[in-house]
């Protein structure tokens, strides 16, 4: 990972010298085994950039904050789709953006790392040895086998090497997906529940939604300049509001179903919504369910600006006849 970080810093420094105004990448985080989004604006700041298996964030959404600037952004395979999606929807001017792809051997689940690492142990370096990440610390080496320690989304990932990028760093990453594992096993497990248990499951997880809207804010597909759920009108005009500001279960259903529906066919599967949720609502189940149905009903997303729900085929399946 050291070489990758080195070449990342070199390229960032070069780009910043050559006219890129903001380089969006990762820097080390303040917590053990963490990284954070980092915005370099001067070539010397490139020295703070890192890439390691804690760089789980999808940085693409930040691009929309810099419409007038020349930017560069670091993307993993799972983040890359969001750039083309936002560019197709004309939220981004692709000409102004340098997309820097990094091959990714999977992201470690932070909780699993913390559970196995002694507290307050500083990670000095991360080494990728085939199917294992080795964390080098002052107290010695800690190996983390990928199969047992990667984030769920990484265990089924087949997009280890980003496509459609302007610059690809490092060496090609070996696929880490476990062929035995069904990417949709979570969805199928819920589908298999009887209706009553489905209801109880969603009542429980939506019941603890805080309506912090982190899932919306982080989502690269949630790109509306004004969200349908934004409380932009005063309370006394509440007829114009879709959900009450007060937390309640029916409105939480309304929010989550519509959030998932608005990104249906546009979701690029980065799973950031699920990662940021402070109460761990399994939002990817909704996104994956819709993706699965779209694939089955309409044969996947056609090329086009806003996805399969803005298109049709005269011979689409018809259950309403």
């Amino acid at each position: 990972m050291k070489e990758l970080t080195e070449s990342l810093r070199q390229e960032a420094s070069r780009l910043l010298r050559e006219g890129v105004e903001v380089f969006i990448g990762y820097a080390a985080g303040s917590l053990q085994a963490s990284a954070r989004p980092f915005f370099a604006t001067r070539p010397e700041e490139a020295a703070e950039l890192v890439f390691n298996p804690f760089c789980v964030h999808n940085l693409v959404k930040y691009l929309v904050r810099f419409p007038d600037k020349r930017t560069a952004v670091v993307v993993k395979g799972c983040d890359g789709g969001a750039v083309s999606r936002l560019a197709e929807e004309r939220h981004l001017d692709r000409e102004k953006i340098t997309v820097v792809g990094v091959p990714c051997g999977g992201m470690l689940e932070r909780e699993r790392v913390l559970a196995q690492l002694p507290p307050a142990t500083r990670i000095e370096a991360v080494e990728e040895r085939g199917n294992t990440y080795v964390l080098h610390t002052a107290r010695g080496e800690y190996p983390f086998e990928k199969k047992a320690n990667l984030a769920a989304k990484c265990l089924v990932c087949v997009r280890n090497n980003p496509v459609g990028v302007d610059l690809l760093l490092g060496k090609e990453a070996m696929p880490v997906a476990d062929p035995e594992r069904d990417p949709l096993e979570g969805v199928k497990a819920v589908e298999a529940l009887p209706a009553g248990e489905k209801a109880a499951f969603w009542d429980r997880v939506f019941g603890r939604c805080l309506r912090c809207y982190a899932c919306r804010e982080v989502c690269p597909a949630c790109s509306c300049t004004q969200c349908a759920f934004e409380q932009a009108v005063p309370g006394w005009q509440q007829g114009a509001m879709w959900v009450e500001k007060a937390k309640n279960l029916p409105d939480s259903y309304h929010y989550h179903l519509i959030r998932a529906f608005h990104v249906a066919g546009r979701c690029t599967g980065c799973a950031e919504c699920e990662r940021v949720c402070p109460v761990r609502i399994p939002l990817m189940l909704l996104n994956q369910k819709l993706a699965k149905e779209i694939e089955a009903l309409f044969g996947g997303a056609p090329a086009g600006a806003c996805g399969p729900l803005c298109a049709y085929a005269p011979d689409d399946p018809d259950q309403f006849a």
Binding site: R36, P37, F38, F39, Y62, R65, L210, R211, C212, Y213, A214, R216, E217, V218, V276, P278
Partner: peptide, 16 residues
């Protein structure tokens, strides 16, 4: 301004 660049603008920190 520098700190806010990475802020998502969500309500997690206040709600917890």
């Amino acid at each position: 301004e520098e700190l806010s660049r990475r802020c998502l603008g969500c309500g997690i920190c206040t709600y917890v």
